[in-house]
Every structure is written in structure tokens, then in C-alpha cells.
Amino acid sequence: MNAVDAKPVKLAVRSATKVYRTASGDLLALDRCNLEIGRNEIVSVVGPSGCGKTTLLWSMSGLHSLTQGEILLDGQALTGPHPDIGLVFQEANLLPWRDLDANIRFPFEIKGQTPDNEWIDHLLHRVGLGGFGGKYPRELSGGMQQRASIVRALSLKPSVLLMDEPFGALDSFTREEMNRLVEEIWLDTPTTIVFITHSIEEAIFLSDRVVVLSPRPGRVQAEYEVPFPRPRSLEIMATKEVFDLTNAIKREIVGSRKRAGETVREVQHAS
């Protein structure tokens, strides 16, 4: 998994710059951010809150336009949402007026395609939701809702899966379960995954590479290879290597925060 350079690049972020024009002035969210993600690689993006992670991910999905720079999918510039890219949102983002079946078939409805029932059934069973098709989101736990949203994202068989802090709202136990599930699904059907998270543990467990974003404006500040074999057992996760890696990433984030704090203070002094 560590021969990243050998993999063809699936998704490339080239000098991505994003300026939000707000009532209180322009806000630079991303500043010439560069990132390459190999085919079937799992890359986690961590960074302080508000540093532009969601902005980066939405740009990669084609939902947001960049102010400057471009996103390349298989070498082609992305100009909008792409059927090859699946998106999993921060909260499960199911439509509460639809039952699970109707939620999962929503993408097909929008596209005017007949749903691939066999594949959907397979996925539902894979995530342990077989027989829950008639349930409404409010009848399901947060974990189950997020499972359903993963099924929805995978139902169109995307080759890229973008996940924005998908398990941030779940308790740590459910979260670990979901991490294992993502790994299993990936082992079943290798996919290129970009995974945004607050949890360094989660990032290390899931990824081939962890990317640390700087405080706003977001830029890639550091990258860490995660060279452990899959499936990653609890034993691996308890080794000193993982511990050291966790600390290194943590230090990187905390250090960047401090530096950002100093700049803020300097600015305040100046004004």
C-alpha cells in the first residue's frame, strides 16, 4: 500500500484557490492547495476546524467551483458533479420524508435510471441494513443512518468516494465499527477514497496517507504515509509505530494552530 508513487493518479488538486465573497469581505478558504490521490488509495485529510477541509472536498466533488486552479479526474478537468464521484456528507443527510429504500433510490430517480436492485440489496446486507428498507430515517440510529447514506453513495458504483467527517457525530464505539465497515467495503470493492476527519486515530486506521491541512487558508502542510497492512487489526493499531505517528500528526496540527494564533495576535496588535 505504500507504493503510492507507482499508482496512476485518480484525482488531482492543482493549485486550488477558493475565495468566498461574503458580506463582511472576501474570505480566502483555500490557497494554492495541491494534492494528488492515486487510484484506489485512501487518503485522509485532517486539520483544524474551519481550515477549508469541506471546501476542498466539495471542490473535488464538483459541487463548488474554484476561484483558481482545477481538479482533475483521470486527467480530465472537472466541470461539475460527476457520476463517478460519490459523496458522503457530514451528517447522514437522508431525506426524512422518504423511507430507506426511497432514499437509496434517490440518485437513480434524479438520473432517470432504473436502480440496480441486486447491487443495492447486496450493499444493504453488507452494511447490516437488510430488511430495513421500509424504515424512515428517524426510526434508525445515527450509525444506521450513516450506513444507509454510504449505501446511497455506493449505489451508483462510483470510482471515487469523498467522505466529509462522516462519523463525526457518532459515539466512538460506533465510529470504530463504521471504520471497520469502510475498510471491509474497500477490501471488497477497491475505490479511491478521500476521507475528512477530526480523529487522527480514524485517519491512521483507514488511510494509506494522512494529509494535514494548515489553518485557513487551507494548504497541504504535511503528509504522512501509513504503511500498515490491511485489514488493520487492533494489535497493529496498538503498536508503537502507530502511537508515534499519531503523536507526530498531533504535534503538526497543534504547532500549526499555535503559529496561526501568533499571526492573529500580531494582526490584532497591528490594528
Binding site: 466539495w58 466533488s61 458533479p81 464521484i85 459523496l87 440518485p107 434524479i110
Partner: peptide, 27 residues
């Protein structure tokens, strides 16, 4: 915005977003 983004990520048209997201939300 997240639900509208969801629909858009599947290439929904403005009309589809109205009937499948905005109208049920407003009901």
C-alpha cells in the same frame, strides 16, 4: 443546503430540486 447539495451532486436540475427537495421540505 446539504440536501440541495446532495441532489446537485447527482446532477439534479433546478426543477428536480424544487419538486424533490424544496417542496417536501416546505410541505
Amino acid at each position: 443546503s446539504a440536501k440541495i447539495a446532495l441532489a446537485r451532486s447527482y446532477g439534479a436540475s433546478t426543477l428536480q430540486i424544487f419538486w424533490k427537495i424544496r417542496a417536501p421540505m416546505a410541505l
